[in-house]
Design a protein around this nucleic acid. Sequence first.
DNA 1: GCGGTGATAGAT
DNA 2: TCTATCACCGCC
Length: 186
Amino acid sequence: MTEHTPLPLSFHARDPVKVARALLGMDLVHLHQGRLRAGRIVETEAYVGPHDLACHSSKGRTPRTEVMFGPPGHAYLFLVYGMHLCVNVVVGEGAAVLIRALEPLEGLEDLRTDGPGRLTRALGLTLKLNARPLDEAPLFVARGVPVPPRHIEASPRIGVDYAGEWAAKPLRFHDRRSMFVSRRAR
DNA sequence: GCGGTGATAGAT
DNA sequence: TCTATCACCGCC
């Protein structure tokens, strides 16, 4: 089994765009019922704070968004369209980074991990993981190989057309070399 | 292209 | 309580 070293919570305590770029090449690991499932992060989106109209925290502090105002490095999970979970890394101050695609590393054979809903299903994540720290089991971000800036492409975020001028901002990032970015990101 | 599905937030 | 909305996906 591959070695997986959790990153410290302080890794995520930076400008949200920097975190979104720095997470590319890191690993997302889920340890559950004796199964280890892990993938390399190849696509992210930054939701930069309450002033960002695409960001859930722009609705203010609610029971759901409270975790985004908490300490960096914790998980923010939510259900969209009644059946798909999305997983974010909290940056703090109302900001978070959505993980949109993984390259399978371990325990994900024959499962699709290109897309925010697919990857949470493949990893077996549940809403119960919401607000948990991401530096320890069962769910953590592990040290990987950073993606050099020349291989990172920025583009508009997916599915946020309602967000006015914020919809067009280049806050999605992906590793150009990866075959596993979600379809609409290529 | 279209609809399933259920948590969430705000209205009633 | 009721209703609108939704950071998606699979199938047509």
